[in-house]
Design a protein around this nucleic acid. Structure first.
Length: 575
DNA sequence: GCCGTTTTCGGCCCGACTGTTTTCAGTCG
């Protein structure tokens, strides 16, 4: 897929045009095209073949022409020209907070600043502060931003951001117990990573709220402190923004600050067509505010049904809402069990009993114990003998726990030659078999996974791409082939809920479901504390527009076993 | 550069905060 490459080029073109002080709307058009390409599910090459690029809103003649040029020649001449006009270091400077195109160009022209090192120099020697429009305070802010930029350039994972955001809400609630306080932004949309933390509070005590916020114990720096908005940096280095709105604007503000940007722009366009104006304070007809207290009424004023936050990415959800066709998204309470967890038989930290008790406490009906197989020696993988011991223990436990079933399972390694780490004779004795790749990532992973899918004793392919967010990319596999085969055989593909994995991603999970694949949302827990990670998997599943009908572990224990037996029977009689 | 249920030209989402100004530009979300 060349989607991301071209997206990156358009984004860089926008940066360069911005430095050249070109037309802001042209710049925005490139930014929009870049964003569309980044979010696009289909391969841009396929769309070009079917001549359907020009049908994408935001892609006009010039953008399609440039995509065409890149796909046929490997470069875009206009981009090459632009690149030659501006040095690379200058474009990178735009990523520093408080430093926009105007300041970068000014520093470049007057002080020959070409990169981050030059910038550090002119901050230190005081020359930056001497430029027109600059002063001590501005330079001090830029200095802090440079330090932050050099320290961390990555987005935070949802797994890091959500608990902190929840803690901030808790601390604010201690002081403002009667006010409504919510997490907004990309965390509310359950995006896998986030740039900052957005909190919203409905209150008439603006000043008191902002004052308390910037004084929270975890705050290390105050970036901004106004009448209705506060912005701080906290211990971990993350930025947290707080907005205070009047209660009768709370719905409009929630809508506005939840985003995404693309979704909001779409809504504003709709509002305009209806001669309405929509902002964080409400929906307005001329000067008159017609609503704003709840999100529902904001959407309703535009002729839309309320759209779940996880869907708000302008990927067709507005159209579906308009047509009354929004999917009934899966919820945490629809999950009946976790089919992929570990015990202390391999590298888990707790006994099977401990894990099962916690799962029962979470309201589940069953738990699939799937420890590593013998090839995973680094994870203390079980051999045949220990697996049989484990099966006996599970049988005994099942006798003692009422209203709950522990499934006898395995996470069997897919070996470099595509065979599995246990024979079919062993696998057929189990209730659930999860197969996954843990080694030799580069040795034809697609073929190995396809072979595992063909095995009727394999129920689920776990963490299929092997990606670790912010750490490593997934293996190079052909998901189209894998989804096609999995849809044929009825093999489930996992949506691993660990916040560092979320594998499948939202895009890929949606693609899989669209192709008829059943998804299994599991936590891969190695300790009881990880079992609640299911909420992250659910967030991603909702971003993938999944309903409970798409998900294996929304089925009862009996149905899962029946389904397994039926698949094995079908395969064996080959009918 | 994109787009069209008043348009093929003339719009393009909208507001807060800061720091520098002395009424506003720059930046951000």
């Amino acid at each position: 897929m060349k989607n991301l490459e071209i997206s990156e080029i358009f984004s860089k073109m926008a940066d360069i045009l911005e430095l050249k002080d070109d037309n802001i709307f042209k710049i925005n058009a490139y930014r929009k095209a870049s964003r569309i390409l980044k979010d696009l599910q289909e391969d841009v090459q396929d769309l070009r073949k079917s001549n359907s690029l020009k049908e994408i809103p935001g892609f006009g003649k010039a953008i399609v022409g440039k995509i065409d040029e890149y796909l046929s020649s490997g470069k875009i001449i206009r981009y090459e020209e632009l690149k030659s006009e501006i040095s690379k270091g200058l474009i990178k400077l735009l990523k520093v907070n408080n430093l926009g195109p105007k300041t970068v160009v000014l520093a470049n022209k007057k002080l020959a600043v070409k990169n981050i090192n030059d910038l550090k120099r002119v901050i230190k020697d005081g020359s930056l502060a001497q430029l027109p429009g600059m002063g001590e305070k501005k330079v001090s802010n830029i200095k802090k931003s440079v330090e932050y930029f050099l320290k961390s350039q990555k987005r935070i994972t949802l797994g890091s951001a959500l608990p902190i955001a929840e803690e901030i809400v808790e601390q604010l609630k201690e002081k403002f117990s009667k006010e409504e306080i919510v997490i907004a932004g990309s965390i509310r949309r359950r995006k896998e990573t986030t740039g900052d933390i957005d909190i919203l509070i409905a209150s008439v005590h603006n000043k008191g709220v902002i004052d308390s916020f910037v004084k929270l114990p975890m705050v290390t720096d105050i970036i901004a402190q106004g009448e209705t908005k506060g912005s701080v940096r906290i211990n971990e280095g993350f930025q947290v923004d707080l907005r205070v709105v009047q209660p009768d604007s709370f719905g409009a503000a929630m809508q506005y600050f939840t985003g995404s940007k693309a979704h909001n722009i779409k809504l504003r366009g709709l509002a305009k067509k209806r001669s309405l104006k929509i902002n964080e304070y409400g929906v307005f007809k001329g000067e008159k505010k017609i609503c704003g207290t709840t999100e529902e009424e904001v959407y309703k004023s535009l002729g839309l049904n309320w759209i779940p936050p996880e869907m708000r990415e302008d990927r067709g959800e507005v159209e579906l809402s308009f047509e009354n066709k929004l999917p009934d998204l899966i919820e945490l309470k629809d999950i009946k069990g976790d089919l992929h967890v570990h015990s202390n038989y391999s590298d888990g930290h707790y006994s099977i009993k401990d894990m099962a008790e916690k799962a029962k406490e979470l309201g589940y009906e069953y738990l699939g114990i799937c420890d590593h197989s013998k090839a995973a020696y680094y994870a203390n993988g079980v051999n045949e003998e220990r697996l049989f011991d484990q099966m006996k223990e599970i049988d005994a436990l099942n006798e003692t726990i009422n209203g709950f079933q522990i499934l006898k399972g395995i996470e069997v390694d897919i070996l470099p030659d595509g065979s599995l780490d246990f024979s079919d004779d062993i696998l057929k004795q189990l209730d659930i078999v999860v197969a996954s790749i843990h080694s030799a990532f580069k040795q034809s992973p697609t073929d190995r996974i396809l072979k595992a899918i063909e095995n009727p004793y394999v129920d689920i392919i776990a963490h299929p791409t092997g990606r670790l967010i912010n750490i490593r990319e997934g293996y190079k596999i052909d998901l189209n082939q894998i989804f096609k085969k999995a849809a044929q055989t009825g093999t489930a593909i996992e949506l691993n809920s660990h916040p560092d994995r979320l594998d499948l991603s939202d895009f890929n999970a949606k693609k899989a479901a669209d192709m008829g694949v059943i998804i299994s949302i599991d936590t891969d827990s190695h300790m009881i504390e990880h079992l609640p990670n299911m909420k992250y998997g659910i967030g991603t599943a909702r971003r993938a527009w999944l309903s409970k009908d798409n998900v294996l572990n929304c089925l009862s224990y009996e149905k899962i076993l029946n389904r397994r037996n039926e698949r094995i029977r079908n395969e064996n009689c080959n009918c």
